[in-house]
């Protein structure tokens, strides 16, 4: 691993030459920009960073970076990221996915990754819709959003990912808006730097299936309160806000997960003694 050198890199150094599959105007373009800007600012060389994803529009992101990447199966980005980080603790590991991937099929992994508090950053591009399969409601979709799969809406209350993260033990919780590249970059930098499991929900409009989300740029607003290290306080605020409140909402101080490693590195032959009689 190479030592991080501040300001040595530009966002270009973390961007690949592949053209994204995203629709023109997709919020995920901005998330890619913010992420690469944040990585440049962090100064860790691209070969020491891994971007891990699941399935969906947003999960295409690893190949658009010039880091190591893994585009896995639907919903399991956090499991891949966990194994990688434990086995290769020197890497900076980012898991990046969407609301369907992260909160529906990957919901169980989300809870347990927060609880495990491994030093990784989880960025969810939340557009409140399954885009790649052309417009089905996700766990964060409003109950009355009409679609072919759920005509008239699902009638279900949306999932509160930030509160779930807090209740499950995440060490850093933030919300951002993709169009606000400056603040999203700042939040990603802070999330990566903060030890333990950092969760960033980025509101990222789907201009194709949720054109109404183009208005998000007018409705998002920065959190009007100071950040806190009290999860109960943070949860209360998030539960009562309008869902468009952005900023770092919780910064905790739980010790990150460390696997039991004695560092002894004994020879295998030592292990075999236990079977001798």
């Amino acid at each position: 691993m190479n030592a991080p050198t501040k300001n040595k890199f530009s966002a270009r150094d973390f961007t690949s030459d592949l053209t994204p599959v995203w629709c023109p105007g997709c919020g995920d373009f901005h998330v890619l920009m913010s992420t690469t800007k944040a990585l440049a600012e962090l100064g860790t060389p691209p070969e020491d960073i891994a971007v891990i994803s699941g399935i969906g529009c947003s999960s295409r992101i690893p190949a658009y970076t010039d880091c190591y990447g893994f585009h896995g199966v639907h919903g399991r980005s956090l499991a891949l990221a966990t194994g990688l980080k434990v086995a290769s603790p020197g890497l900076t590991v980012l898991a990046m996915s969407g609301d369907g991937d992260g909160f529906s099929i990957g919901g169980n992994h989300f809870i347990h990754a927060c609880r495990r508090n491994i030093d990784i950053t989880y960025i969810v591009m939340d557009n409140r819709v399954y885009g790649m399969t052309k417009g089905q409601p996700s766990p964060t979709t409003e109950p009355d959003w009409d679609s072919a799969l759920s005509p008239g809406g699902t009638g279900l209350s949306p999932f509160h990912p930030l509160v779930i993260a807090l209740a499950s033990g995440a060490n850093f919780v933030a919300r951002s808006f993709s169009g606000d590249i400056k603040n999203t970059t700042k939040i990603i930098v802070e999330a990566v730097k903060h030890p333990g499991f950092s969760f960033v929900q980025i509101l990222s409009p789907c201009v194709t299936f949720r054109p109404d989300e183009k208005d998000w740029k007018n409705t998002v607003h920065p959190a009007s309160v100071e950040e806190t290290d009290d999860p109960a306080r943070a949860a209360r605020r998030i539960m009562t806000d309008d869902g468009m409140n952005t900023g770092i909402l919780y910064r905790g101080n739980r010790a990150p997960y460390k696997p039991q490693v004695t560092g002894k590195g004994v020879e295998t032959i030592e292990l075999e003694r236990q079977f001798e009689i």
């Binding site: 891990i52 956090l78 891949l80 194994g83 980080k85 434990v86 086995a87 890497l91 490693v261 002894k264």
Partner: peptide
């Protein structure tokens, strides 16, 4: 021997943790 084991939340996770570690 200087390695590690992680207990996963289910088998969907354990197989992917192993794949992630091996990718590394």
């Amino acid at each position: 021997v200087g390695g590690a084991l992680v207990q996963a939340e289910d088998e969907l996770s354990s197989i992917n943790m192993a794949i992630g570690a091996s990718f590394g």
